[in-house]
């Protein structure tokens, strides 16, 4: 079985704070990590590898620093790593990124499964999975939590509007793994060292994949940032329990917490 896993390197959101009053975003700690949902996807692939044997290929479309993300993937147990990186690819928009990734995946030897994280923790983007599935002509299972191979088919527990259901699909297929799926294992220390010292990461450029600069031009623009209002703290109310319960529920609804 061959499994391709697309991972994205992001700035750790834990190191970023948003000051609503000053309407500014501060990067307190600049650390790059593998997007958590992508790491869950990697773990799902590795569990299939442990149980049934598989070749796991990690790909990443990103800056040169994404090499570290791929080394981490190798340390976790991936067999091969491909970095798609090029000055020409800097600043491409999400739709184009999906096209580039799809072409890279097609360039690999045929895969039985393509795994990606459902959501990017930095941008909140969650359309790459569906786009990839369409471009690659694959059936899709989104918001996957657990995967298991049952004969020829893959059985997946996935969330549908927050509720877990079971589905089955025959490979080849694309699975988008939820950040609520089991987190990745710890990489073995020796594998960490070997991932850097002995293993290699192939690097593909936009040219290698046959893209022209024109094709990579971004089509989506930003019109700026909007900041939610500052939290208003210290608002105290008093009254009968039923009335208080009503106020609490109103706040929860307003904040979309229920």
């Amino acid at each position: 079985m061959r499994i391709a896993v697309a991972v994205k390197q992001i700035l750790d959101p834990e190191g970023i704070t948003v000051n609503r009053r000053r309407e500014r975003i501060f990067i307190n700690r600049e650390e790059r990590i593998i997007n958590p949902a992508d790491k869950c996807a990697l773990e799902a692939a590795l569990r299939l590898k442990d149980a049934h044997g598989a070749e796991v290929i990690a790909l990443s479309l990103g800056r040169p620093s994404a090499d570290d993300a791929l080394r981490e993937a190798l340390a976790l147990g991936a067999d091969q790593a491909v970095l798609i990186s090029d000055k020409a690819l800097a600043g491409i928009d999400a739709p184009t990124a999906a096209v580039v990734l799809a072409r890279a995946i097609e360039r690999l030897a045929p895969c039985d499964l393509v795994l990606v994280g459902q959501t990017a923790a930095d941008t909140g983007g969650d359309q790459t999975a569906g786009r990839l599935a369409e471009l690659l002509g694959l059936p899709q299972v989104l918001h996957a939590v657990t995967l298991s191979l049952d004969g020829e088919r893959l059985k997946v527990v996935r969330l549908w509007d927050g509720r877990p259901i079971m589905v089955a699909v025959a490979p080849p297929a694309l699975i988008a793994v939820s950040p609520l799926a089991p987190p990745a294992r710890y990489p073995h220390g020796a594998r960490i060292l070997n991932a850097y010292r002995q293993m290699g990461v192939s690097v593909w450029t936009a040219g290698d994949l046959g893209f022209t600069a024109e094709e990579l031009r971004p089509n989506i623009e930003s019109r700026g940032q909007v900041f939610p209002p500052e939290r208003e703290l210290g608002n105290v109310i008093e009254g009968a329990p039923e009335q208080m319960a009503g106020e609490i529920l109103a706040l929860l609804r307003q904040r979309r917490l229920i």
């Binding site: 939290r231 208003e232 703290l233 210290g234 608002n235 105290v236 109310i237 008093e238 009254g239 009968a240 329990p241 039923e242 208080m244 319960a245 009503g246 106020e247 609490i248 529920l249 706040l251």
Partner: peptide, 24 residues
């Protein structure tokens, strides 16, 4: 705790919990 809360409710916790459960 109230200065740190988005919403502070001065009431008996148990009674409010009962009301919340009933409402939900």
């Amino acid at each position: 705790i109230f200065p740190y809360a988005d919403l502070g409710v001065v009431a008996d916790a148990k009674a409010v919990l009962e009301a919340l459960n009933a409402a939900l």
